[in-house]
């Protein structure tokens, strides 16, 4: 039996992160894009905790705490944006929000 090391956690986190990044690019629905961002954040949280364990430092866990807070703020503002946009035009996707194009 292979021994379970911290590297396993990191590999899992990398996998989730890559899936999230790919999903972020592929999906057009802004809500789902936000979910993909949450996936990536969770992957990062996992690495933080793993590294914190490896280095025997509480800082990793504290950072996860901050990431949680930032994620909450991001979701609040992001969902408000989605609501504001969808109210104007039903069925708008992220591709429609290109007013800032050069």
């Amino acid at each position: 039996m292979v021994e379970l090391t911290q590297t396993w956690y990191l590999v899992l986190a990398a996998l989730i992160f890559a899936i999230g990044a790919t999903g972020l690019v592929i999906r057009r629905n802004p809500l789902v894009m936000f979910m993909c961002v949450e996936l990536m954040l969770n992957a990062v949280n996992l690495t933080f905790v793993s590294f914190g364990n490896m280095l025997d430092d509480v800082g990793g866990q504290v950072f996860v705490f901050f990431v949680l807070v930032v994620a909450a703020a991001e979701v609040a503002v992001g969902l408000a944006l989605v609501v504001a946009i969808t109210r104007r035009r039903q069925g708008a996707t992220a591709d429609d929000l290109s007013l800032m194009r050069g």
């Binding site: 690019v25 007013l99 050069g102």
Partner: peptide
């Protein structure tokens, strides 16, 4: 600068 979030991502 296409304005498309997904290309930026």
């Amino acid at each position: 600068q296409s304005g498309l979030v997904r290309t930026y991502a």
